[in-house]
């Protein structure tokens, strides 16, 4: 299925434009979704840390550690929340969800009053950890670790779906454009063969009568051009 040469550049231009739209849309979407989902996860983890810090301060002050443990155990059931630990005012981890123990990286660095940590825990992965002070930090801090791998997967899944859809649209558009271009260029190609056969005196195979007659009957520019070639042929130009 050939397309007239002068349309091939147009076709290429259309494809290039579509590709540009696809890539730029994907890039903007990836960036937006990545930022929004990351913000969402960090906001969620901060909300969890705040909820524990604000609502369970009595448990911490009264040293009701089992009840505190019971509370934080419920939060790690939320997808994406990998661990929670609570540090008291003296800097002791008084409740946590780690198995088989508190990772060395955390044991070495959890006492600062930083609001976020970027952690890579050996054998566990990468985590964004947010913290919230209990009674303004006087009674300790709640730490909530979100699995970066989990939200990277969520972002990739969301992006993947959109890119998949855009790719399908692109492929369908390319095929549709190609088909339309073919519909436009095919009569010109037949008329070209008819002109070469009728007017050049060289040996060129004419289009089949079944292909030519419909063209000559058309009322548009193609029909006019065909009839003009026939007239030139008949007049011996």
């Amino acid at each position: 299925m050939r397309i007239a040469r002068f349309y091939q550049k147009t076709l290429f231009g259309v494809f290039a434009l579509m590709g540009l739209i696809l890539v730029s849309t994907s890039v903007i979407y990836v960036h937006t979704v990545d930022r929004q989902l990351t913000d969402y996860f960090l906001t969620s983890s901060r909300a969890i840390a705040r909820a524990i810090a604000n609502s369970d301060s009595d448990l911490i002050i009264n040293q009701n550690y089992p009840a505190l443990q019971s509370v934080i155990d419920q939060y790690v059931e939320i997808p994406g929340v990998s661990y929670v630990y609570v540090v008291d005012g003296q800097g002791t981890i008084i409740a946590h969800t780690f198995v088989p123990g508190v990772p060395d990286e955390i044991a070495a660095d959890y006492r600062s009053e930083a609001e976020t940590y970027d952690r890579t825990l050996a054998g566990l992965g990468s985590f964004s950890e947010v913290t919230e002070g209990i009674i303004g930090g006087e009674a300790g801090r709640v730490h909530v670790g979100m699995d970066k791998g989990y939200f990277a997967l969520q972002v990739q899944t969301a992006i993947g779906k959109v890119v998949y859809l855009l790719t399908i649209i692109f492929v369908v558009s390319v095929l549709a454009t190609y088909g339309l271009m073919y519909q436009v260029s095919r009569p010109l190609h037949l008329l070209g063969r008819y002109a070469w056969h009728s007017l050049s005196g060289e040996k060129h195979a004419p289009p089949a009568p079944g292909q030519l007659e419909p063209l000559l009957e058309r009322v548009d520019e193609v029909g006019e051009l065909g009839r003009l070639i026939r007239r030139a042929k008949n007049e011996g130009v």
């Binding site: 550690y65 089992p66 443990q69 155990d73």
Partner: peptide, 11 residues
Amino acid sequence: QADAYGRTGWA
């Protein structure tokens, strides 16, 4: 045990 029971023993 990493839950309220274990924490009771720990405390």
